[in-house]
Every structure is written in structure tokens, then in C-alpha cells.
């Protein structure tokens, strides 16, 4: 029986301007699972994802592999949870691709030789060695997506959290990226509007709407539930 990778209990969050983003969200994700989070715009998907590595800390409790998310445990949590942002321009802030991918391992305290080896290996696995010395600002969107994923995977996280991974990608890029995500052995939590991706990659789906967790179950059972999907803005009426 696989242990729990993520446990969120009664998580609520209110933004500083007073807008309530999450209401009493409770769910668990088991090790090795691939879970999709779907919902209309403004449902709170990204807000929920940002709770998983402590960028946001609202009410309630979140645990990652049994470690309670608190200020003193943030480093340990962030070693285990890799978050790939929706916009790679937010994720890539170092001058070159090599520097950006090396950023995470350097913060883990690895030696320069270990970091160099990890980065070179990851660039090769992601087939982006040719971008090694290129400035990140000059990459295409598909290349940026690959580099931003590499910059997270190089830290060997046990949980990979992806926020809208295929947005802005062309059909070929989208297919290749999906295959890349499929091949990851880590626990995956994917927030997306791409229902096709959810069907292909996720065994389970959480549906968020206006900050509430309205459904949690097997992917096909939820996506094929037309009244549920229509009621929460996920299928045209």
C-alpha cells in the first residue's frame, strides 16, 4: 500500500485584498499517483498548487510525505516538491540555460562538480544540450517549457506539480511534452484546462470551482459526467 505523498486538511486561503480563494479543501494524493486538478478560470487551482510547497500558507494543514508544512520545514518540503509554473518566463530568471538548471541543485548545497554532472545529465535527458549556453530570454516558448521542467526535475523531486503544462505549445510540442510528463516516475499533480491531457495522464481528478472542491474521483467517471462538467463551467452547455 503506497503512503500518502500529499495530505491537505481543511485548507482555506484569503488573498491580502480580502478575496477568498480556497474554502476548506481536503484531499490526499498517494505516492506514484497522477492527479489532475481541473476547474474554470478563477477556481483557485494555482492558489492550491502554491500551497503545496509553501509559497502560500493559508488556514488548515498541509503535509508532504508526513512532514507538516511549516516555516521550519520549508526547505525539506521544497526539496520534495517541484513546482513548474504556468508561465516559463516567471520560472527562468538566470542568464543562461545552464545557470537556470543549476540554480536548484546549488541551493541544495551540492558541490560544483555534482551540480555540473546533474545538470549535464538532465540537459541530455531532456534533449536540450544544444541550448546549454543560450540566454533564457532568447528561447522559444516550447524550449522555455522544456528548460523550466528541467530546472525542476534536476532536483529529483518526489512530487512534480505542473501548472498548465501544455498551454501555448503547438500540437507537436504538446504531444512531446505530454510524453515527457508521462515518463516521469514521480507523483504528479497537474492543473490544466486540457481535458485530453487529463484523460491521458491522470488516473484521478479533482474538480475545483470558486474555491471549493466539488468532485474527487476517477478521471473518466468525472470527465464523462456531463451534468457535473456543465455545472462547473468545464463543458459548453
Amino acid at each position: 500500500m503506497m503512503g500518502k505523498a500529499v495530505e491537505a486538511s481543511h485548507v482555506s486561503y484569503t488573498y491580502p485584498d480580502g478575496s477568498r480563494a480556497l474554502f476548506d479543501i481536503t484531499f490526499s494524493v498517494f505516492e506514484g499517483e497522477s492527479v489532475g486538478i481541473i476547474g474554470p478560470n478563477g477556481a483557485g487551482k494555482s492558489t492550491l498548487l502554491w500551497h503545496l510547497n509553501g509559497i502560500l500558507r493559508g488556514e488548515g494543514r498541509t503535509k508532504v510525505f508526513g512532514i507538516t508544512l511549516e516555516k521550519k520545514n520549508l526547505f525539506e518540503i521544497r526539496k520534495r516538491v517541484g513546482l513548474v509554473f504556468q508561465d516559463p518566463n516567471d520560472q527562468l530568471f538566470m542568464p543562461t540555460v545552464f545557470d537556470d538548471v543549476a540554480f536548484g541543485p546549488l541551493n541544495l548545497g551540492l558541490s560544483p562538480d555534482e551540480v555540473r554532472k546533474k545538470v549535464e545529465t538532465k540537459l541530455e535527458e531532456m534533449e536540450i544540450c544544444h541550448l546549454r549556453d543560450k540566454p533564457t530570454a532568447q528561447l522559444s516558448i516550447g524550449e522555455k517549457k522544456r528548460v523550466s521542467l528541467a530546472s525542476v526535475l534536476v532536483m529529483d523531486p518526489k512530487i512534480v506539480v505542473l501548472d498548465e503544462p501544455t498551454v501555448s505549445l503547438d500540437p507537436c510540442g504538446r504531444y512531446r511534452f505530454m510524453e515527457l510528463i508521462r515518463s516521469l516516475p514521480a507523483t504528479k499533480i497537474i492543473s490544466t484546462h486540457d481535458l485530453d491531457l487529463v484523460r491521458n495522464l491522470c488516473s484521478r481528478v479533482l474538480v475545483l470551482d470558486r474555491g471549493l472542491l466539488v468532485a474527487d474521483g476517477p478521471t473518466n467517471g468525472i470527465i464523462d459526467n456531463a451534468p457535473l462538467m456543465e455545472a462547473h463551467g468545464l463543458k459548453p452547455v
Binding site: 502554491w50 521544497r78 546549488l106
Partner: peptide
Amino acid sequence: AAMLSRGYNGRMSTM
């Protein structure tokens, strides 16, 4: 937030 997610602790480390 992206920097914090990758373990940034206030000190900028580079190769």
C-alpha cells in the same frame, strides 16, 4: 516565488 520553490535562501549561488 519561483526562486523560493527551488530552494532560494537569500544567497545567490552560481557556478
